[in-house]
Amino acid sequence: MIKVQDLVKVFGAKRAVDGVSFSVERGEVLGFLGPNGAGKSTTMRMITGFIPPTAGTVTVGGFDTVENPIPARRLIGYLPENAPAYTDMTVAGFLNFAAEIRGLRGDAKRKAIHRVVEMCFLEPVMHQSVETLSKGYRHRTCFAQSILHDPEVLVLDEPTDGLDPNQKHEVRGLIRRMGASKAIIFSTHILEEVDTVCSRAIIIDRGRIVANGTPEELRRKSESAGAVTLRVSGVNGAALSQRLAQLSTVKRSAILEEDSAGVTARVFPKPAVNAVLARSVAEAVQGWRIEELHTEEGRLDEVFRSITMPETAKMGGEGDRKNPR
């Protein structure tokens, strides 16, 4: 449904998006990860046609968003960053406007509004002015606008930003359920959302895609993926390290914790020996009391940090000139 090809956006001297290509099919929820200023919002703005690309193409449902913007936009529901909404309108008035501009009239309009009001729990604030809404309600009002016409493609820029934990949970559930029948792309910097919501994730850094895969695939890239963590009692760290160092499957091991009760260590495998590492470690420490022994799945935050670290380290001064309004 969404096809992005060699997309580039240059602002002055800055390449905010630098050759990004990917596609999202119906039934997929693509998570868009990356540190602040990585180019997530800029990419999404080009997908929705808000800003024109410097180079490259975006097609949505086969329509080029520059050559043929109107039919492309009909297919898209868009929640921009910070969930803007007309502050001088009531929630009902705002949704009514959004429905009419989507071409909905009469009964179809009433039904569509009713549906999203239920989905987003907006009933209590329908006649309140948007200006006086709490952040969570304003966010959901803008979210409701994006799904009003039951679009085939959803572009959500940080849909859970600024919500409380319960609301975050609701919105994630909503996205996951809608993902079954739509093509969804959403940006976030909350890594646990990748596991709970996405079928695939892309990590973008300084305008480039640095990783693209299912959450499991990404996790396997982390350093600790396949490592074995164990805790044994009645032994000291030095003795344990020495025993582990003799194993041919072990690249290195590290003592994580040592106290009078015992030692916790992590053992990293040599390439391509993951599966047997746990067994060989268990055999190596026979005779001591094993209190815990498990293989690590890998951690997304580790992958994220190791891939994007060079940028995050000097992020402090990254003056974010945002929002081309």
């Binding site: 808000f50 109107i70 868009y78 909404a85 502050t87 071409g103 309004r325």
Partner: peptide, 17 residues
């Protein structure tokens, strides 16, 4: 006002010219 509040991003991504 559209630009300050950011609603211009909604308005100009609707299926209108």
């Amino acid at each position: 006002e559209e630009r300050r509040v950011g609603t211009i991003e909604l308005l100009l991504t609707m299926p209108i010219t």
